[in-house]
Design a protein around this nucleic acid. Structure first.
Length: 270
DNA sequence: GTGATAACCTGCTCGC
DNA sequence: TGCGAGCAGGTTATCA
């Protein structure tokens, strides 16, 4: 389930292989989520960027190819094939030179592809309203706290909404909340808790990038390799095991339709 | 405008 | 062994 570290890992791998190369002959699986892939025509890649969990590929003609990997999406350079439908779960494909293709596979079809004029994200509501990147200085000095104060939702739900801070998903939210000792269902957090939470988010995302992402089941990078960050998780998916900090048993609870794991002792609700 | 909830989608796990 | 139900979860749409 790609979050910021997984998307950033893929971005770093794809950038040197795509910049300066021409995409052409886009093919798409028959779904409105992917058919924009056909709109590329023929265009040279000038930059491979990222915004939150979205890959943003700049094209020479002032357009951008936007790719969201959803839960099971992968983007990689692969050998060309005559018949795209013969490739399992292939949802989009663009030809590169030298009999290579850029292919997007997505088992569950939760991903999305869009081609837009540069910066025109009106069709992609989450991207249009995306909050600052985690390393953005505007989150410092209480910036995250002030933003979270505007919402009365559960703090974890706010983190996942992408409006207050970009790129955090279920795994890294659970990890950061555990480190900061904040209960995921808190509706109000203190300035100090928010500061600790911001630091924790930065730590877990940096670890995730350093470890090449978290592979629980589907995620692979642009080389088809799994990440290793799942080996360092402190909380996510560990319900029923002892808390590394206090020894209490971690518990799992559904909060706003998202499974959340936390320590009932370290992370007490306010 | 905000918050809550259902739907999308398919492979995997578990219980019978 | 085989089948069906439930679960996983990021985003969007809909409703209150």
């Amino acid at each position: 389930m790609p979050e910021l570290p997984e998307v950033e890992t893929i971005r770093r791998q794809l950038a040197p292989r795509l910049v300066g190369r021409r995409l052409s002959d886009g093919w798409a699986f028959e779904s409105a989520k992917f058919t924009d892939a056909r709109e590329i025509g023929s265009a040279t890649v000038t930059q491979v960027g990222r915004r939150g969990k979205y890959l943003v590929i700049d094209l020479e003609d002032q357009r951008q190819l936007i790719v969201h990997l959803g839960m099971t999406g992968s983007l990689r350079i692969a050998p060309d094939v005559v018949e795209p439908t013969s490739v399992p779960y292939l949802r989009a494909r663009w030809r590169l030179e030298e009999d290579r293709t850029l292919e997007f596979r997505d088992t569950r079809r939760f991903g999305r592809i869009a081609v837009v004029r540069s910066g025109d994200y009106g069709r992609i509501a989450t991207l249009a309203a995306m909050g600052p990147e985690p390393d953005d200085p505007q989150l410092d000095d209480g910036g995250l706290w002030r933003s979270l104060r505007t919402s009365h939702r559960h703090v974890k739900t706010s983190l996942l909404a992408q409006r207050h801070i970009a790129g955090v998903g279920n795994i890294y939210a659970d990890e950061a909340l555990w480190i900061a000792q904040v209960h995921p269902a808190s509706r109000r957090i203190t300035r100090r808790q928010a500061d600790l939470l911001l630091d924790a988010i930065r730590v877990v995302l940096a670890e995730g990038i350093a470890n090449g992402g978290t592979t629980l089941r589907d995620y692979v990078d642009a080389d088809g390799s799994s990440g290793t960050n799942q080996l360092t998780l402190r909380c996510y998916g560990l319900a029923g095991t002892p808390c590394h900090r206090c020894g209490s048993t971690l518990v799992s609870r559904v909060i706003d339709a998202r499974t959340s794991t936390y320590c009932p002792t370290c992370q007490r609700p306010r």
